[in-house]
Design a protein around this nucleic acid. Structure first.
Lengths: 209, 209
DNA sequence: GGTGCCATGAACAATATTGTCAATAGCTAT
DNA sequence: ATAGCTATTGACAATATTGTTCATGGCACC
């Protein structure tokens, strides 16, 4: 009886790389950079682990590649979520909700948190908060009806606070909200974000520092 | 020549356990639960790795023990930082600063973040935000000079926001503040926290929702 | 001094994980 | 069809990590 030769699928190198990167990115959000295992990535991608090494050279290069791609995805998703809503007031709530969903459902917030915890520095080329500050400051000036002239640093701190609440919140908010005595309802985080939006807008419009 | 018999130190079991837990807790803040390695812990504690296993049974039990102790330390430090300042207004800024320092310098914020990222659930026995909410709501009612009666849920959300800013901020703020265009000065995070305090107090006193 | 308890660590075992190598098998071009 | 390129993988090697065994040595107690 002839040896039952196993069927193989042969992909274009780029297609195989993309498939492997997809599997790796899932693991990245789930267990972080240092938790990525070649065998698990390979199994998830439906290939053998030497194939992964063939396409990426080493585990370390694979991790570097997936981090670079994940950061690019995050940037793209954030820009899209921000641009999707124009700058007017009613849309601001929607924008924060868009960003929160973009960060949470994709696991991007977890990725950012893993990276920072493991010592990765997010430089300006990877994430650009200054652009968000510019947009927010423009919105704030447009909304101005008298009062003091808002300082740009104040807007920057507001953006940082919102970022902390959204990125940190995607990881911590469910635990923290419940721990603070708010109901464990699935909509509680969304309520919290709406509340946050009103707080930030209130600060924009009535800053008395 | 007689075999050069190696000197040994022999500690009380409890002293050895404490020594090993200290070394393990350092690694916990640095590399997280899943990054803890018996050899590194043992080397740091100045013992051999079988000694670690002798005292804790297995790596998993060691990690459980260090997590339990770390959470207890965190709770103690937080309660101390909160109680250290009485409830009046000028002290609130100092209290937030105390909590921030307690979370940051000890690496406790990193520990919390690692734990939540790796799926650990912080139940009420480990961290009690409700106590903080109680204290904050009391302070808020004491400060009230007319205006609507503040809702307890609103105070709870404010506490959660502060917690997100402090815990998340201990990990993310340096990166984010610089990324937002604020100076990379070492005092920038402290300035941010002062700004946050004023924002939260302003919300307590002038909530118009 | 002698004895028993047990903390300690050297040597070993077992498994997990990364990386190497060579043979195989799909795909394209001719 | 045939040849060549290379994606693919089984088998193996090397190392890391956890866990086990057992002899030893420090210490309290008699």
């Amino acid at each position: 009886m002839a040896k039952p030769t196993k069927p193989r699928r042969r992909l274009e190198a780029e297609a195989a790389r993309a498939l492997i990167l997809d599997a790796t990115e899932k693991r990245l959000a789930l267990v972080g950079p240092s938790g990525i295992r070649l065998q698990e990535v390979a199994a998830d991608a439906g290939v053998s682990h030497p194939t992964v090494l063939h396409h990426f050279g080493s585990r370390e290069l694979l991790v570097k590649a997936v981090i670079a791609r994940a950061l690019h995805h995050i940037n793209t998703a954030l820009v899209a979520a921000i641009n999707a809503s124009s700058g007017d007031e009613a849309q601001l709530e929607a924008m924060i909700e868009n960003v929160a969903i973009a960060l949470e459902r994709s696991g991007h917030a977890r990725v950012v948190m893993w990276l920072v915890l493991e010592g990765h520095r997010l430089d300006g080329a990877e994430v650009r908060l200054t652009d968000v500050v510019d947009a927010a400051h423009g919105l704030r000036l447009a909304r101005r009806r008298g009062g003091k002239y808002p300082a740009r640093d104040d807007t920057a701190r507001t953006v940082v606070l919102a970022s902390l609440a959204l990125v940190g919140g995607a990881v911590l908010a469910p635990t923290m909200l419940e721990n603070a005595g708010l109901s464990a309802d699935a909509r509680t985080p969304a309520h919290f974000r709406k509340w946050l939006t009103r707080l930030l807008l209130g600060h924009f419009d009535h800053d008395r520092n």
